[in-house]
Amino acid sequence: MASGQADPAITAQRAAQMLERAAIALTEAEGARDRVRALSEAVRGYEEGLIALREGLRQATLRERVLVMRLDAKREEVARLLGALQTIQRAPAPLLLLHPSGPVGTARSGMILSEITPALQSQARTLGAELSELQVLRLLQESAAATLSEGLDGAQKARIALSRAVADRTDLPRRFAADPAALARLAESSQTLDSFADGLSRQEVTALESGAGEAEAPDRFAGARGRLPLPVDGKLLRRFEEADAAGVRRPGIVLATRPRALVTSPWPATIRYRGPLLDYGNVMILEPAADFLLVIAGLKEVYGEVGEIIPAGAPIGLMGGEAPEERDFLTVGVKDDGGSREETLYMEVRQANVPMDPADWFRLTEE
C-alpha cells in the first residue's frame, strides 16, 4: 500500500472495537444511576464506530479498485511473466545456458539470464503481494457485514432506549414553571424568529424554589467563546448571513449532519422552548446564561421539558431522516466522506436578542 494511505484492515478493526465498546455501554446502561448519560454515551459510541467502519469499507473499496485496474492493465505483461517463469522452472539449468553460437554465446546468455531472473522474481513477488492484498480486502468486506449489521441494530436500540429514558427522567432541577398556553400563543403570533426570541426573553415565568436559582452568569459563558463543542457531529454548510440557494440570508449557521444523529447541549442551560416553530421544524431554545439564547432548529425529535436545567452534553434531540442500512455502507463512492450528511441543523447564538456569529463561539469543521 502506498505511503500515507490508511490501512483499511486497521481502520475496520478499530471500528469493530468501538462498536463492541458501544454494545457493552448499552448493556451496562440498564443499571446505571444516570441512564440518560449512559445511553447518550452508548449512542455516540455507536455513531463513531459506524463512521469508522464506513471509512474502513471506503478505503477497502478504493484500494480494491486500484488493484483491479492495475492488474487489468498488466494482464498481457503478467501472462508473459508467468510464461517466462514457468519456462525457467521447467527447463534444466545447463540447457538454459547452452547457446548454438558456441561458448561465447553461452557465456553471454548466462549473463543475460542472471540479470533477468532476479527482475522476473521481483515482478512475481510484487504480483503475488497485490493478489494477496486483493484477497484480504475482499475477505475484509465480507467479514464487515456481520459487524455492520450488529452495529446498526445496536444503534437503533440505543436511540429507542434513550428516548424512553429521557421521557422517564424526573431528577432534573427546574428553574421555572412554564405556561404552555402562553408559549403556544407566542409561537402562533410570531412572524419571525426575532420576534419570537424577543417575546420569549420578555415572557414572565414563575420561579420555583426547588430550582437552581438564576441563570448562569454571562461572563462564565462568554469565557467559553471559541471553545464550545458543536451540538451534533456535523460540518459547516452555510455561514452566518450567507445566502442560500433561494437568496435567503439567516443570522445563523447551517450544519450538515448524518441521519438520526444525536444532538446534545453544548453548555449547561435552561430549556426555554421546545417544539415546532415557523418554518424551522422542531426547535430547541436554550438559555446558557442570562441574556444569552442558543437556537437549535431542524430536529426530528426533541427531549426535555421547558424550565428544566440540563447539564452540558445532555441529549436534546435526534436529527431526522432514515437510519442508514447495510447497503448504504457497502455501496461506498470514491468521494464519500465516511458517511452521508443528508440532514441540516440550523443554529443561532443571541445576546440580548441580537444575533451573533456562531463561528466565533463554536469549533467548526468545514467540508
Rank of each mutant, 00 (worst) to 15 (best):
E133M: 04
L139H: 13
S189D: 15
T126A: 10
G128T: 04
G83V: 13
R175F: 00
I112V: 15
L186K: 11
T192P: 08
S109G: 09
R169V: 00
R159Y: 02
L183G: 03
I112C: 12
M111D: 14
A93W: 15
P100Y: 07
S109D: 01
I160P: 04
P100Q: 06
A155E: 00
G151V: 05
R174P: 01
A119E: 10
P103S: 06
L81F: 07
A93K: 15
A177Q: 03
M111A: 13
R125L: 13
P103R: 12
S101A: 06
S132Y: 12
Q141D: 12
S114G: 07
T170M: 01
R164T: 00
L134T: 01
L120N: 03
T147M: 12
S143Q: 15
Q86P: 03
L98W: 12
G105M: 08
G105I: 13
V78R: 09
D179P: 02
P100C: 10
P180N: 03
L131M: 10
P92K: 11
L134Y: 09
S189R: 14
R169C: 03
F176L: 00
R164M: 09
L193D: 02
A167I: 04
T147Y: 10
P100K: 14
T147K: 10
L139S: 03
A93M: 13
A158C: 06
L134G: 05
Q141P: 01
L96K: 12
A187V: 03
T117N: 13
A107S: 14
L113W: 07
A144F: 04
Q156G: 01
R108T: 13
G151Q: 06
R138F: 08
A165Q: 03
L98E: 07
T170F: 07
